[in-house]
Amino acid sequence: MTRVWDVPVHDSTRVRDVRVAAEDAAGHIGLGRDRTAVAALVATELATNLLKHGGGGQILIDTVDADLPEPGAGRGPAVQMAALDHGPGIADLPTALRDGFSTSSSLGAGLGTCRRIADHFEVHTVPGRGTVALARVHAARRDRAGHRLPEAHAPVRAGGINIPLAAAAYSGDAWACVRSGDRITLLLADGLGHGPAASKASGAAVEQLRQLAHLPPPELLGALHTALRDTRGAAVAVARLDLATEHLDFAGIGNIGARLRSAEGWRPLLSRPGIVGAHRPARLPQCRLPWTPDSLLVLHSDGLPSRWTPPPVDLASSWDPAVTAAVIVRDSSSAARPVRDDTTVAVLTPTPQDHRS
């Protein structure tokens, strides 16, 4: 099941809760003592920064796969920490990111030190709209001599943000991205309803993806339909990118939203009505679209507004995809719109040339 730590941060008493959540997440994936301490420090600084620059906000802590290199070259699971706020934005981001620049009541590390010690750190801030700060910490890969191995990057990156309804411990949504040779498959599943039973259904879909990532989307959905019969069922969307032919195949069942951006603009990708594991459509065609250097794929569960559209400010392909997902979630939410379900956004983007090894 998908475990997510959702901690509101509106006063200094919640900073400790964020630190404890980061330590719990690190233990969940078996990080060692040193890397757990790094995750705890980064989480503490993110929470303190929320209070100083954003007037409070939300910290989401999750465990995710770190990257999509060739099999055997990855860095394993990571603790992902995302801080979201609707504040005024950080007026002087270069200064805030300077190593040793300390926010008030912090441990004295500051965002600059977080950028240095985290395995990935990125901040997106816009005056008047708020800030998204994202960090990931994973177990360092080392050779037999104990030297840290260089990172390996795939031609594309995947990332996501998962928010359980009412800050529940488990989300009924789950997403994953798996590589099989030259094919990369992004899946988003929304278990029927919410809570542990919904999480079991979406988690079963992710486990099947890890075993059957070589299948085209319609065949994978057929296998999922059989595997999820003993669960509540789920809405599932599957997108498979072929790196060799540079095309994207998509198929879905249920109300998972999907949009693909290209040079011509945004195009919706349509799923068929039904519930995987309960009501499968008789025909399940897939659509095939070109994948270009400016492509960007967004999958989202129905926790977003039903008429969500991409924001007028362009979503840059150079952003970490989890930052893109967090910006979408932040900008589509408001206090006036009650949330009635888990909310997940998963994004697939090309890897910027200067990020590739």
Results as ranks from 00 to 15, higher is better:
D320E: 15
A21V: 04
L68I: 10
A176P: 01
H86E: 14
R330F: 05
A205I: 10
V313G: 06
P305V: 01
L84D: 13
R179E: 08
A133D: 03
A168I: 00
G87M: 06
A174H: 11
E246D: 15
L187T: 13
R183A: 12
L248R: 13
P127F: 01
H247V: 14
A316P: 02
R3I: 09
S334A: 13
L220N: 01
L46W: 04
G76M: 08
A213I: 00
P321R: 00
L209G: 09
R288Y: 03
G146I: 05
S357Q: 05
A346G: 03
P69G: 08
S106W: 07
V347E: 03
P77R: 14
N49F: 02
Q208P: 01
S295R: 11
M1N: 02
S199K: 08
D342K: 02
V7A: 11
Q208F: 00
L111D: 03
L134G: 03
T113V: 14
S334F: 02
A282M: 12
P94L: 04
A204E: 14
E264R: 12
V126Q: 10
T292S: 15
D173K: 04
P290G: 04
D242H: 12
D17E: 15
P217S: 12
G274R: 09
V345G: 05
T185L: 09
P310R: 00
R75W: 03
A47S: 13
C177K: 07
L297E: 04
R210C: 13
N49W: 03
L304N: 06
V132E: 06
V329T: 13
A227Q: 15
V20S: 11
R229G: 14
L224F: 00
V42W: 08
R129I: 04
A109I: 11
R129H: 15
A168L: 07
L84I: 15
